[in-house]
Design a protein around this nucleic acid. Sequence first.
DNA 1: TATTTTCCGTTGCAAAAGCAACACATTATG
DNA 2: CATAATGTGTTGCTTTTGCAACGGAAAATA
Lengths: 210, 210
Amino acid sequence: MNNNFNLENFISDFSKSCQKMQKKVFSKNEVVTTYIKNRNQLCILLNGHADLVRYDLNGNRTIVEHFSKNALFGEVFYTITTNNELLVEAKSSCTVLFYIYDDIFKKCKSNCKFHQTLSENLPQLILNKVTDLNMRIELLTKRSTRDKLLGYFSLLSTRNLSTSFELPFSLTDLADYLSVDRSAMMRELKLLKEDGFVEKVGNRIILLYK
Amino acid sequence: MNNNFNLENFISDFSKSCQKMQKKVFSKNEVVTTYIKNRNQLCILLNGHADLVRYDLNGNRTIVEHFSKNALFGEVFYTITTNNELLVEAKSSCTVLFYIYDDIFKKCKSNCKFHQTLSENLPQLILNKVTDLNMRIELLTKRSTRDKLLGYFSLLSTRNLSTSFELPFSLTDLADYLSVDRSAMMRELKLLKEDGFVEKVGNRIILLYK
DNA sequence: TATTTTCCGTTGCAAAAGCAACACATTATG
DNA sequence: CATAATGTGTTGCTTTTGCAACGGAAAATA
């Protein structure tokens, strides 16, 4: 593992050097990919926003992950054990690089720089994913909608180094991410405002508690 | 990555070959370790059972992960981003191997076989952890206690290749794992029995639906 | 710019989940 | 083996959450 690995530089460089990558452009609401058992796909979001969503038998939608610029996704990061369908949906127009691999940890036969760098750094990239997943589990184990909202806001606050930040979701999608009913979440958000915990200006949240 | 890697053989072999490992024995309810920022610890449970638990500010306990024989845990698999304390508690008497590393992906200076094998296979071990985490997220995103119970039972059923299986938890702990109130869970479990979905004989669950 | 679609904000009511308390069973422990 | 500690099963009551529905705002689209 190379600790000086810079994901952004890496991503901006490799598309020149590698022939096996496919670049595609999607418009809003298009399905970018579905997760399929035993296919080995790695995807990189070059720009735009997309969500990994799951629909269950009751018709509930869950946003499993939210992806923005330079996010990595695909079956590498998700061994499929569920029967429910997993889709990646474009939330805005976006550009995605696709790469089907044989053995993700080995560089390809053509020996290009991209695959070498990728296989060297993949363990670290997977560890980053582990961190995300653990944070998500902590959110989901919170017992009340209020704690889920506050927990998520606190996470965004930390990530933005500020008590004020833009929500990356519509409120409708936020409910599907926190796995709660939208109207119940709206009610709770209102109470949080009334109780002086947060303010909301447009799509921006301001935390009022230390 | 070596696809023929056998975790069990690996674990049973290396303690002879590596000097940097520490073996310790714990009795029930002892704290095996706490997760500490910027320490690099990898632990292997040689026998017994242990849980990774988190206590939140409201006094709720969450069982984050349940470990049995040959489980791997420690900071490698959990970059700490939370303020809550994370403890590993022994659920029975158990034996644990500890290993503090500098760079987990590199073999150590003494060049022993263990570290070489470990660094070669760690990516795959981390991917296994990713799979576990994704399954856990799927459980936690289920909207009702009933669906959480059925989802968990279905998972155990798949894992045991049988519609009948032992619960690895006490019911009290199961509630803390599913992140629901114990008495509410008991009520729901009773309803599941009344509705003919499951039977419970001692600590064994029998699924009655196809 | 007119029109359609999506999202926001809200509410009444129903259902689910949480809380607290208790008796009894089972399991550890001196 | 007696006693303490922990786990199970249950219930009444309260609080939270979900569901369904609706009007208006905002955003997308023709």
